[in-house]
Amino acid sequence: MSNSKGFLKSSIGRKAIMGLTGLFLVTFLIVHVSINSLLFVGDSGATFNAAANFMAHNPVIRVVEIGLFAGLILHTVQALLLTLANRKARPQGYAVVNGAANSSWYSRSMGLLGTLLLLFLVMHLYHFWWPTKVAVFTDHEHNTFDEIKAVFTDGTMGIISVLLYVIGCISLAYHLLHGFQSGFQTLGLNHKKYTPLIKKTGIGFSIIVSLLFALMPIGFLIGFIK
C-alpha cells in the first residue's frame, strides 16, 4: 500500500519537488551571497578574487554546480507544468476577482517573479558565469573583480546593467518572501513552535540577501566598492 511510483506524478509529489528544489536553491544563495559579500572588504577585490578562484577550481563545487543547474531546470520545468495544469483547473475565469482581499500579490505572482528571475539569470550568467568558464578551460589569467567592475562602470550601459540587477534583486526578494516559507509548508513541515520562526527567518533572509546583492552593482556604480 505504498505509492512511491505515483508520488512523483501526484499534485502533492510535484509540489514537493518544487519545495525541495526551491529550498536547495536557497542554500546556493547562502553560499553565493557570502562569497560575494567579500566585495565589500575594500582591498580592490584581492580577498574576493581569492575566494572566487578557489570556487572556480574546486572539484566539489564543480560537481555541486551541475546539481545546481539540474535543480534550477527541474524547478522551472515543474513550475511551468503546474501552472499549465492550474490554468486547466479553471477554464473560465471570473469577471471580478478581489485577490487582494485574501492573499498577497507576490504569493499570487510567483510565476511572473520566477520568469523575471529566469530572464535576469540569463543575463547574469552571460555577464559572469560564461567568462569565468572560458577562463578556467583556456587557463587564462582572470580577474573576476575587474570583470564585475567593468560591467557596472561602463557608462550608460553600466547604469542600465545596475538598474536591471536591482530589478532582479527586487524580484528575488518577493519570490523568496513567499517561496521560503512556502517550501516548508509544501513539505509538510509545519509546527506550532517552529513555523512562526521559519516565517520570520524567511522574511529576514529575503530582505537581507536581496539587499546585499543589490548593494554590489550599486556599490560599483557609485564607487563605494573600490
Binding site: A89, N102, M110, Q181, T186
Partner: peptide, 21 residues
C-alpha cells in the same frame, strides 16, 4: 489525494486565499 487529482482540481501554491475565505 488520488481522487482529488483525477477530478481535475489545481495544485496548491500556498497563497492562503482559501484559509482567508
Amino acid at each position: 489525494v488520488n481522487q482529488m487529482d483525477e477530478e481535475g482540481f489545481g495544485n496548491c501554491t500556498n497563497t492562503a486565499a482559501c484559509e482567508a475565505e
